[in-house]
């Protein structure tokens, strides 16, 4: 189960790994927000290319990444199929046209605009998926906290995030241990052999010890933090944050350019919206 998780606690040695937490976090959030804000394929495709290059550049564990990519791809395709099933002529609303390519019945038609929209949507979601996969595999909890602090998040919230991040592997391990010990006592968790109701009840039996052990830790950790003077001062510096490297200085310029692009996109979307949400080359 542990190998399913994507958390790095030791920084790696590739180009992206060596950047400061500040640069990583800023770049990541800008790309994600840009992808949320736009439906324009002319923005989405470059983002997608950057995300794929980013993912390949950190030399990730192949097996794990390919498995999750296939899973996410299938889930997205299934979602698109649902959209098509509920409203086959969705492209009319989003792109403003409906050129029928072929039709199964009067209702279930396939239009080129719908396909265009589905393609844009698939690239958009896959790009944001690759960005988060890259980000999670090249940042450590402390760097994430430092990075969040650099985008003006209060440091207590940063502490929450980095602590939570730090305790996920521990809690996963506890969960696995409790589950295995319950199974040795004869609890059947196989989804084929037990009903949904029984399984839910069995999860409760795992849950009670898990909750008690997890929250028992809280007192100890809080005392440890208090003893080291946490929360006494208004601000906090981060040990994990090293000085800017040369690459960080160049990427700071990229961050400003991306921020300008993002603001331009939002302004365009809010004040000068086109008649249709999705830009489509053949139905302007």
């Amino acid at each position: 189960m542990d190998d399913k998780l994507f958390i790095t606690l030791v920084p790696g040695n590739t180009f992206l790994d060596r950047l400061t937490g500040k640069t990583k976090t800023r770049l990541f959030f800008l790309f994600i927000f840009m992808l949320v804000a736009t439906w324009d394929i002319r923005v989405i495709i470059p983002c997608f290319v950057v995300s794929v290059i980013g993912l390949l550049s950190i030399k990730p564990d192949k097996k794990k990444n390919i498995a999750i990519t296939i899973f996410v791809l299938l889930m997205n395709v299934f979602n698109l199929f649902l959209v098509w099933f509920i409203e086959p002529d969705y492209g009319l609303k989003m792109c403003g046209g409906s050129t029928v390519l072929f039709q199964f019945t009067d209702y279930f038609i396939v239009t080129s605009e719908s396909l265009w929209y589905f393609g844009a949507r698939l690239f958009k979601f896959m790009a944001s998926f690759f960005f988060s996969l890259t980000f999670i595999q090249c940042i450590t909890p402390s760097e994430l906290a430092a990075g969040l602090h650099s985008i003006f998040v209060p440091y207590k919230i940063c502490m929450v995030v980095s602590l939570a991040f730090r305790y996920i592997p521990d809690i996963t391990r506890d969960f696995t241990n409790i589950k295995i010990s319950m199974q040795t006592r004869g609890m059947e968790l196989d989804s084929k052999k037990t009903k949904v109701g029984t399984r839910l009840k069995q999860y409760v039996l795992i849950l009670i010890p898990l909750i008690i052990t997890s929250f028992d830790r809280v007192g100890n950790i809080a005392n440890g933090m208090d003893l080291r003077g946490f929360g006494k001062k208004k601000d906090k510096t981060y040990y994990a944050e090293h000085e800017d490297t040369k690459a960080d200085k160049y990427l700071a310029i990229v961050v400003w350019i991306l921020l300008a692009c993002f603001i331009a996109l939002v302004v365009k979307k809010t004040f000068f919206p086109g008649p249709y949400e999705v830009w489509c080359p053949w139905c302007l």
Binding site: M159, V160, V161, L163, F175, S191, L210, A222
Partner: peptide, 25 residues
């Protein structure tokens, strides 16, 4: 809001994330 609450929220969020990934149907 004190140190204990901050740690409690963190552990809660971690627990939520783990259960969301493994403890569901």
């Amino acid at each position: 809001w004190n140190t204990k609450t901050i740690v409690g929220v963190a552990v809660g969020a971690a627990l939520f994330a783990v259960l969301m990934n493994f403890g569901g149907i």
